[in-house]
């Protein structure tokens, strides 16, 4: 464990707590893409298959459980909670995320560390996570003004993988045999997808203005 990865995990946890706060406090999920949340739930379920077979550390196990439980709780809430589901922007959240599923799965069949069930699904979860934010970013562009908590949520979500990139650089210097090309390249793509969001987030922070994404 290194400081970059720890900060990355904490940033990821903060983003989830912000989303839970928004949904719990405002009983609304306006501006949140259910499709992105469903993709994240799938990312965690396919990545943490080793939850009960490989024990790495208490921290690792606890964080995996928190990520799985929170992502499922958010999806359940957006689908079934009477107040929350009514605020879901169904007509705006129209990204065809099944293509993301298919593309990630096909790529995982081609590119993986080992052709084994758990490894192919692990690679699938890495590729899927890289593109899972797309429905959310498209929804933000369509819904124009972005409420504060939603903006913070997306910001921390993007920042966590950027910190992981520093973690991979650090681990490479510590141990040149440490190569995680799949996670690293996907992490770069994932962070790059946030580039324009980070730009508009920075502008809104500098001008102390509301976060506006161009349509």
């Amino acid at each position: 464990m290194n400081i970059f990865r720890f900060l990355g995990d904490m940033t990821h946890l903060i983003s989830i707590l912000i989303l839970l706060l928004k949904i719990y406090a405002t009983k609304s999920c306006s501006g949140i893409s259910l499709k992105t949340q469903e993709l994240y739930a799938l990312v965690f379920l396919t990545r943490y298959l080793d939850l009960f077979t490989d024990f790495i550390s208490v921290y690792n196990t606890v964080m995996k459980l928190v990520f799985i439980a929170s992502s499922l709780a958010i999806v359940w809430c957006m689908r079934n909670h009477p107040l929350v589901r009514r605020s879901y922007d169904k007509q705006l959240d129209t990204f065809r995320h099944y293509f993301l599923l298919l593309a990630s799965f096909l790529l995982a069949l081609l590119l993986h560390e080992k052709f084994a069930f758990q490894e192919v699904l692990w690679a699938f979860s890495i590729y899927l996570e890289a593109v899972a934010i797309l429905p959310q970013l498209v929804l933000l562009q369509r819904s124009g003004n972005v409420d504060n908590l939603t903006g913070q949520y997306v910001f921390f979500l993007g920042a966590y993988r950027a910190l992981y990139i520093f973690n991979w650089i650090y681990r490479y210097f510590i141990d040149p045999h440490f190569t995680r090309w799949i996670a690293c390249v996907s992490g770069l793509v994932q962070t790059a997808l946030y580039a324009d969001f980070f730009y508009y987030y920075f502008i809104s922070w500098k001008n102390n203005a509301k976060l506006q994404l161009p349509a």
């Binding site: 464990m1 990865r5 080793d50 790495i56 550390s57 690792n60 990520f67 440490f178």
Partner: peptide, 10 residues
């Protein structure tokens, strides 16, 4: 921490 496949990260 290194596991087979090195999946020690979240």
């Amino acid at each position: 921490e290194q596991l087979q496949g090195g999946h020690d990260e979240l």
